[in-house]
Structure formats: C-alpha cells, structure tokens
C-alpha cells in the first residue's frame, strides 16, 4: 500500500506498527501522551494503546533513560523520546555509562534494546538548546548505535527496525524536515537499517550527508548539474556503525569527497569519515576530503542560523574547491 506521508506521520505510523507487533514496546517521554509530543510524532498513540504503553513521564531525562534500562532488563523495549536535542544531556550519564555498556559488562547476559529518539538539528528559528547536533558524542561511545533518517520511507521502516534491534540505538530525526513528504510503500521490503545509500549518481565529486543535510546535498547536486558538474550524493543513514563500502566505491570513481553535516566541523563525523576515506582511497584521491559543517561556535541565536548552517552555496563552494585541486 502506498501513501504520501510526512516524516512525522511516517514515524507515527512506524511507531504504531511496532507497538502492534510487539506488546513489550513502551513509549516514554515528556508530553508524548495526551499532547502527542511537541512535534505530534506520537499523536493518538496514547489514546489507542493506553497510558501504560505511552507514558507521559515526569520532567527528568535521567529518569527516562535510567528507568528504560530497568524496563529493558525486564524484557521491555523502551522507546524514549527526548523532546529536543539540547535536553538529552541530563540523560547523558545514563546513556554513556549505563545503556552503552551493559551488554558488554554482563558478557551478553543482558541486552539493551532501547531506542532514544531525538529530534535534532537547526533551521526552525528556535531559542537556545533546540537546534543542536549531538551525534558525535554518541557515535564516539562504544556500545551505542546511531542512525539518522532523512526521508519518510526511512522514517517509517527505520523506527520499526530500530525498535526490533537488540542493541541501544540513538535514532536521530531531522526536525526541520518533519513536514517533508514522500510516497511510502508500507508493503515493500525495506533496506537494512545499517546501510548507506547512493541517492543520486554522479562522476565528479561524492557528497556525503545524513539527516537534514541530505536534502541540501541533493539541491546542491541539482544546481551543480546546471553548471555541468556531476555530483554523486550518498545518504549515510547510519553513523555508528558507518557503512562506507558504497562510499569507498564511489570515491574511487570520483576521486573527490565532501562531507556535510550541521554539527561543528571540529571532531564531527566528517573527521572520522575523512580519515577512513583517506585510508581506503588514498591512491584514488585527487583532492583532500573536505568538510562542510557548522562553525566551531555555540549554535547561534536564530537570526544567525542561516549563516551558521551549511546550505546549498556552502556545499557548492566545497565542491568547487574539491574540483580545483
């Protein structure tokens, strides 16, 4: 069955499906029940599944993640919503010191099938702490897996796959794209969760992006095409583990690579990717792997976010520089 869905609605339907499929799935978060979440991602779910399965929690993120650990030990599959990226930090201790390590510490006797949903990134004109890109903190933490969706199809399937997965997953949702629409075939066979995907073919430069920046990268590729430049775009989809095989194959062909993310450039995902591409493609590279990202500053007040966030022009600028070597 094919439906036109926004990313938000696709997540909502994916959550619904996961809850129907497995009675152990429990949603937890601030304002997710009666209100349906501040972005309405859980709209209607408490009404249909009850207050025991869609839990409006006290206002305490450490509590959400810490109790999720205990629930997971009892065989439940907690799906935790963090209201905004900037509010995950009270839970950071639980995520990094507990959630991430319990499987290893228990020598596999305990699993942590916990999903941590985080609307991430900027571009919505918000006040402080509502526009962060904290993915590197999590990708840097062994024991966690990190994925970022960019479109309704991956949102629909990805959330179900993440919930069914035995390891803890930080599930990043591109908040400024929640209202972007696409056709979703709910009877299709989904791509695997931990796989990157070439979303536009090209020969001159390989541009890597994830989450909200995939759309930006595709727009840049379109604009570059008008100038006769052929840009290949890869949606990374999974940030930990990284799936770089298709990327390596691509860069060996194009010889040039640009990584784009909203997070500050320094020690962001781009740094790790550049290192790995350099190791794997050293003899094919015509230019250093370039990074386009946020500046190394706190996320600015919203009047400046257009200047802060990588956009089509900055991606094209990097493509030009890569071609100029």
């Amino acid at each position: 069955m094919t439906e036109t869905l926004t990313i938000g609605k696709a997540l909502n339907l994916g959550l619904r499906k996961a809850m129907e499929d497995d009675a152990k799935v429990v949603l937890m978060g601030e304002d997710i029940g009666r209100l349906g979440g501040v972005f309405r991602i859980t709209d209607g779910l408490q009404k249909d599944f009850g207050e025991d399965r869609v839990v409006d929690t006290p206002l305490a993120e450490a509590g959400i993640l810490g109790t999720a650990v205990g629930l997971a030990m009892r065989g439940y599959r907690p799906v935790c919503e963090i209201q905004f990226d900037g509010f995950v930090f009270p839970a950071y201790n639980q995520i990094v010191t507990q959630v991430a390590k319990i499987h290893a510490r228990s020598r596999g006797k305990l699993t942590m099938p916990v999903v941590i949903r985080i609307p991430f990134g900027g571009g919505i004109g918000a006040v402080e702490h509502h526009s962060e890109s904290p993915e590197a903190y999590f990708a840097h933490t062994p024991g966690l897996k990190v994925v970022a969706v960019s479109n309704p199809v991956d949102a629909y399937w990805g959330i179900q796959q993440a919930i069914a997965h035995p390891d803890p997953i930080v599930f990043l949702e591109p908040k400024r794209r929640y209202w972007d629409k696409a056709e979703v075939d709910t009877a299709a066979t989904p791509d695997p969760l931990f796989a990157s995907r070439v979303v536009r073919g090209g020969d001159d430069v390989t541009v890597l992006a994830y989450g909200p920046m995939v759309k930006t990268a595709l727009q840049a590729a379109e604009a570059a095409a008008e100038e006769g430049r052929s840009v290949e775009v890869v949606d990374l989809r999974t940030l930990s583990p990284l799936d770089l095989d298709p990327v390596v194959e691509s860069v060996r062909r194009t010889g040039r690579c640009v990584v784009v993310h909203e997070a500050p450039v320094t020690l962001g995902l781009g740094a790790e990717i550049a290192a790995r591409i350099t190791e794997a493609c050293f003899h094919s590279l015509e230019a250093p792997v370039l990074r386009v990202g946020g500046y190394d500053t706190p996320y600015p007040p919203s009047k400046l976010e257009e200047e802060y966030l990588p956009d089509l022009d900055r991606v094209l600028d990097a493509v030009d520089r890569a071609m100029g070597f």
């Binding site: 500046y295 500053t297 706190p298 400046l304 200047e307 900055r314």
Partner: peptide
Amino acid sequence: DPPGTAMFDQVYAEQTAHLAAQQAEFEAY
C-alpha cells in the same frame, strides 16, 4: 539583526587562533 561575526567573537575570553581563522574565513566567504 546581529552581525554574523557575533557568533565568533565572544565564544572564549581568550580567542583561539583556530576560531579567529575560522571567523576570517567566514567573513571572506
């Protein structure tokens, strides 16, 4: 509206060379 440089100039009490260079790059861009 604030100037774009407002993002950079008060991040630290002692500006780093790295951030100063990034600010210069930003201004040139």
